[in-house]
Design a protein around this nucleic acid. Structure first.
Length: 528
RNA sequence: CGCGGCGUGGAGCAGUCCGGUUAGCUCGCCAGGCUCAUAACCUGGAGGUCGUAGGUUCAAAUCCUACCGCCGCAACCA
């Protein structure tokens, strides 16, 4: 048997100086849908996530709390994973950059780049604040009349030895790479941004070392220095699959199929990262996808808005776990995937959240399951005798199932999740409700029980198809729907291809869901 | 002239790349139908000069130009 096609994807790794928020959750969700979809389609998937811990901010935060930095990082990693698990993010590995393994592997990479001649010693000159113990940008210097915005003291011009990475040497190769691989940066708007940035501003060599830090990763050839966080963070993507200590697994997965990242860090992933890899003699990743942000009232949701949200009684919006608890992880997933376009920005609105949930999950999908199951249950004791080996008829007239599935598939692969869900609801579920209305099996059953049975047999297929298509989006609910009937293919094995045609099954169609009492418990109870 | 995005009925969006059916969808509102279902479902209706002004064209929300307004980013904020 031929080896399965591999699919290696990552999300950005997060700073654990505060708990995960809606924005970081949004990123993981979009990546999760892709991972789940690829697994369904038979790919051998490896999904990497992690935390970016080797930064001064993290050690400062730990110090503020009076904690050992490592202990702090480990606890934050636990908290992050708790949220990702609650959201059913199906990652395969979670890298902590403070781990010894990651550091050792990084050092090998850095040494290699150094040996290849792409790292050299120089001087870094800039505006330094002794109290912050860090350099400030020219912009900050200019905007604050030469003072530190935090300490309100004059910034000092300072020059210190440092190591620089020859990023400038890769400008032409990067531009050529973008041109030859139009899909390397997605969506297109992000690519245009990077191309024009490099074409107009060019690339400068960057300082990749820091001095005087106790926390961080030592540069292998000069232990006095620690490495610039980005140079270490990006390496997670390869140390997590064995770079430096497991050549076989590294070769199996690299190059990455997609790095999912926020649009703000596109340049690091599209310019610095490929250059680093090339400098070490490795291939660039196949694709970088810069997703959009989630806003609230037009602005990003951050700590800075905590007070404002608290006044409105909406502080729970800052905490993904609270939203999950208040509603459910499936509702959380559905809202962001349906309402916020992954490639561009979206909006989080509590009212809209309830709106989307009620109209699409409760009233449409959930209610359809209830009514169909109930009709089969009450009128046919849960079993449609004689339907074995019968091919169901199409319910949605004018819809070519194969084309429809191809459309949804295209949206999923292009990360246009909102459009995929829109198509499923509008072009498939709503017409199924119309079909039921037109054929009124609840009325027909009184005059022609066989004809009504046929209508139900056909209509139930819509639940099968919809649940398959929805599997990457709302895995738990989709499974609940699918396993409510005795559809032949085991849930774990269904593929999008199974949704492309109406086929006969060897057994009579019957309800397999456990029904207690005489009322079916709603899958998505209305909220609000 | 730093880069980029947005402006479509009360609200939120799709459509714009590759101009062309009565400008589509969700919510809300009004009227009706149905009653199997989660007060759900279905049908119909009111409501839009598609930011403004020009231009190209037989035809423009869609292409071109200018302008107005809003918003992000600018090298450790997803």
């Amino acid at each position: 048997m031929a080896a399965k096609t591999t699919w290696f994807q990552t999300t950005a790794i997060d700073y654990p100086n505060s708990r995960p928020h809606i924005g970081t959750a949004f990123e993981k969700l979009g990546a999760d849908v892709q991972a789940r979809y690829r697994r369904m389609e038979g790919y051998d998937v490896f999904f990497l996530m992690g935390n970016d811990e080797n930064t001064v901010k993290v050690s400062k935060r730990a110090a503020e709390l009076g904690l050992d930095t490592q202990a702090y990082c480990d606890d934050m990693a636990r908290q992050f994973r708790e949220v990702w698990d609650a959201l059913d993010i199906s990652y395969d590995t979670f890298v902590q950059t403070s781990s010894d393994r990651h550091k050792q592997c990084c050092r090998k990479f850095i040494q290699k780049v150094y040996d290849n001649g792409y790292i050299y010693k120089g001087n870094h000159e800039g505006w330094y604040c002794p109290d912050c113990e860090e350099f400030k940008s020219d912009k900050v210097h200019g905007e604050n009349a030469g003072n530190c915005p935090v300490h309100k003291k004059p910034l000092q011009r300072r020059s210190e030895p440092c190591y620089l990475f020859k990023l400038s040497a890769f400008a032409d190769r990067l531009l050529a790479h973008y041109k030859e691989n139009p899909d390397f940066i997605q969506p297109d708007s992000r690519r245009n941004e990077i191309v024009s940035l490099i074409e107009t501003e060019g690339l400068r060599d960057i300082n990749i070392s820091r001095t005087g830090e106790a926390w961080g990763l030592r540069i292998p050839f000069d232990e006095e220095f620690t490495i610039y966080v980005w140079f270490d963070a990006l390496l997670t993507y390869i140390t997590g699959i064995g770079y430096g200590d497991n050549e076989a697994t590294f070769r199996k997965w690299w190059p990455a199929d997609t790095h999912f990242i926020g649009k703000d860090i596109t340049r690091f992933h599209c310019a610095l990262w490929p250059a680093m890899l090339w400098a070490a003699g490795e291939e660039a990743p196949k694709k970088v996808f810069g997703h959009g942000f989630v806003n609230f009232d037009g602005d990003k949701i951050g700590k800075s808005r905590a007070e404002e949200l608290k006044k409105k009684g909406l502080e729970y919006l800052l905490e993904p776990m609270e939203i999950i608890r208040k509603f459910s992880s499936e509702a959380f997933r559905y809202y962001f995937l349906r309402e916020c376009p992954y490639p561009s920005d979206g909006e989080l609105s509590p009212d809209r959240f309830i709106d989307v949930y009620n109209s699409e999950l409760a009233n449409n999908l959930g209610n359809m399951l209830s009514r169909e199951m109930n009709l089969v249950w009450k009128n046919y004791s849960g079993k449609l005798d004689g339907t074995a080996d019968k091919v169901p008829e199409a319910v949605v007239t004018g819809l070519n199932l194969a084309e429809f599935v191809a459309t949804v598939r295209g949206h999923v692969e292009g990360c246009r999740y909102n459009l995929a869900l829109q198509a499923i609801v509008q072009d498939f579920l709503t017409p199924t409700n119309q079909y039921l209305e037109t054929n009124a099996p609840w009325k027909l059953v009184k005059t022609d029980k066989e004809a009504a049975k046929k209508v139900l047999f056909n209509a139930v297929q819509s639940l099968r198809i919809a649940s398959i298509l929805l599997k990457p989006f709302i895995p738990r609910s989709a499974e609940a729907i699918y396993t409510s009937f005795n559809f032949p293919t085991p849930w774990a094995e269904v593929k999008y291809a199974d949704a492309t045609e109406l086929k006969a099954q060897s057994e009579d169609l019957r309800v397999t869901a456990v029904i207690t009492g005489d009322k079916i418990t709603p899958l998505f109870p209305r909220i609000g």
